[in-house]
Amino acid sequence: MSEISPEQFREIAARIEAEVGKYIVGQREVIRHTLICLVVGGHALLEGVPGLGKTMLVRTLAKVLDLKFARIQFTPDLMPADIVGTDILEEAEDGRREFRFQPGPVFANLLLADEINRATPKTQSALLEAMQERTVTVANRSYPLEPPFLVLATQNPIEMEGTYPLPEAQLDRFLFKVNVEYPSSQELVEILNRTTGDVEPEVSVVADGAIVRRMGALARQVPVASPVADYASRLVVATHPESDTAPEMVRKYVRYGSSPRGAQALILGGKVRALLDGRYNVAFEDLRAVAPAALRHRLLLNFEGQAEGTSTDDVVMEVLKEVAEP
């Protein structure tokens, strides 16, 4: 596999963003964070009210990257086999019968797990195993998933009745949690123009799975200076209420801080952001830019925090404000 240069990386990324931008109006941060997850092989949890283009984003991304796309609408009656696949009994022409593995929708490069919190924990865990191990085990047989494998799960922050919120351990497996904000008035006008006419935008394929893997390999080569790594560590440590460096808000409202995966997400996200920004090293600013997406779903608020209406985003912003660069 031949390597790509940082310039090629930036160019491909820019083209991906541009192509996706043909369908998705605004949401530049969402697109960029999703792209970061895709490049470094992490999964993203998109949270936003219905109709903001989450599904369209993933679908467009799949088109642009010429990746195999699958979508699962999570419902309470969804079974694990509906995701990972199952062995089915088949009769051959000679009359013999045998089990054959019928792959589920998880065998895709881009998997949209729509409204993941509507499925039962058992079903959720089936997907989460695939996300972590990148293999699927059915009837004692393991089936590897073809890289790149990116799960883009969505959650609806409203209509929480009858949902099964993801446990913290499972949330931790998402590299980023991306909040999909409601578009501005101008963006909404643009959305209306694009979606109510008779011309559908055409997107072209910019890259494929192999290129995405090479982009990921290049991103991991980006050096991180010791003060920057130290800053990432400080940020994560400061989210723990028992830490000496924790801000007052963390001590007051946070029950559990981020796991080490949070620091990994900061660095990996920072690396890709640096390359996208035309740099070959991670800066403090990169960490600050990805910190909300990397940490917000890794903090668990206590009762007081929830009662006060504090969001984990508020806590992350407070941590960024209080923790000084080394």
């Binding site: 050096p223 991180v224 200076a225 010791s226 003060p227 920057v228 740099r279 070959y280 090293n281 991670v282 800066a283 403090f284 600013e285």
Partner: peptide
């Protein structure tokens, strides 16, 4: 944007 620090650390063999 930490370019110098990174370059110095790479040059010094720390990275």
């Amino acid at each position: 944007a930490e370019r110098l620090t990174t370059a110095i650390e790479i040059g010094a063999g720390q990275l």
